[in-house]
């Protein structure tokens, strides 16, 4: 019973990982590398968009992703009552 219950915790954790790592992949490898040329046709301020993603944007998104993960996991830990006191 306990085992099944914690399976839910682990599955939800994996779902979060897939979601967050997809964003991680899209901003860096997608916007910053694979489609950088195409995105460079657009501009934000003085930045060609692909270049901005590669040298600025992706790094900001990385930081945000970790803090979103921290928030999601703290909530999940409490929900499944496996957090530390």
């Amino acid at each position: 019973m306990k085992g099944n219950y914690l399976n839910g915790y682990w599955k939800q954790n994996i779902r979060y990982l897939i979601m967050l790592l997809s964003i991680w992949f899209i901003v860096s490898y997608g916007c910053g590398i694979l489609f950088a040329d195409n995105l460079n046709a657009f501009k934000i301020g003085g930045f060609p968009l692909g270049f901005w993603f590669a040298q600025q944007g992706s790094i900001y998104v990385f930081v945000i992703l970790i803090f979103v993960y921290v928030h999601l996991m703290n909530k999940l830990d409490r929900f499944y009552d496996v957090d530390e006191i």
């Binding site: 991680w24 590398i33 590669a54 790094i59 990385f62 993960y69």
Partner: peptide
């Protein structure tokens, strides 16, 4: 120039893997 991005993304993106995995 642009190719320098490999260091910027490479040396920061690894922390997402560290934190999550």
């Amino acid at each position: 120039g642009y190719s320098g991005s490999q260091y910027l993304m490479g040396w920061t993106g690894g922390y997402v893997l560290l934190a999550l995995l």
